[in-house]
């Protein structure tokens, strides 16, 4: 049965999907951050080091994870989680820019940034499982896919000297941010489950299934290209 409300809801979903496409694939987040952040960075007092910012970001992310869990009880927490996640994104980009402006880039900083990045991804996904918003199997597949992708990316850095291009964090953060908004919208409009020929499907599951598939596709694609690059390097000189 088609009612005016369902048409409005459908339009809302289409608009969100369109926004999703624009934000995730069309905008150059790295450049936007890079133009936005330096004025902010200069206001940071000199006794705060970039590593301290990274660790602060980690604690902010734990708060976001807590909010995602609490959304189990009240879906307005999705909005709070989106706000806190936004602050985290700011801190996450700030530490790298601060280190570069002050010429304080260090090996410890790179290690902390990358390791905390992985841990953060796991923490957020784990809170999605605990909150029961999305099927645990899908989230676990995303966790394993993400870790495997980073593993290939690190290998690429060890063997060719450059990381894989999809590793830039801001884009992933934008995707997470949008997922939270979609989750809020889905709960708000009461579109949590829908029926397809007698099969009940949760709409968040249907939305989230894109992520592991994307990871699988991008890992295969990048491995293929990495293989070609390694072949070129091997033919240049036979040396490990």
């Amino acid at each position: 049965m088609i009612s005016p409300i369902s048409i409005i809801i459908l339009l809302g979903l289409i608009i969100i999907l369109f926004l999703f496409y624009i934000l995730a694939f069309r905008m150059k987040w790295r450049e936007i951050w890079a133009s936005l952040l330096p004025p902010l960075v200069q206001k940071i007092p000199p006794y705060i080091t970039p590593n301290q910012l990274s660790i602060t970001g980690f604690f902010i992310l734990i708060i976001a994870a807590l909010f995602i869990y609490l959304a189990k009880f009240n879906y307005f927490f999705f909005l709070w989680a989106a706000v806190v996640g936004w602050i985290y994104a700011l801190f996450d980009s700030l530490d790298g820019i601060l280190a570069r402006i002050r010429n304080q880039t260090s090996n410890t900083g790179i290690f902390l940034d990358q390791t905390l990045g992985e841990v953060n991804e796991l923490v957020i996904l784990f809170s999605l499982i605990l909150g029961g918003h999305i099927r645990a199997e899908l989230v676990v597949a995303t966790m394993i896919g993400g870790l495997f992708y980073s593993f290939i990316s690190n290998q690429s850095q060890a063997l060719t000297g450059s990381r894989l291009p999809e590793s830039d964090r801001p884009r992933w953060l934008m995707l997470g941010f949008l997922l939270l908004l979609v989750a809020f919208f889905v709960k708000f409009s009461g579109l949590e489950t829908f029926n397809i020929s007698g099969m009940k499907i949760r709409s968040l599951d249907a939305f989230f299934i894109i992520v592991p598939i994307y990871y699988l596709a991008i890992t295969l694609y990048r491995t293929y290209f990495l293989w070609g690059e390694l072949k070129k390097l091997d033919q240049g000189k036979r040396r490990p």
Binding site: T223, L226, W227, D234, R238, P240
Partner: peptide, 13 residues
């Protein structure tokens, strides 16, 4: 003496 980058990558992956 055939150690290659591809071999290392394949082995680990």
């Amino acid at each position: 003496h055939q150690i290659s980058r591809r071999g290392v990558f394949l082995d680990y992956t």
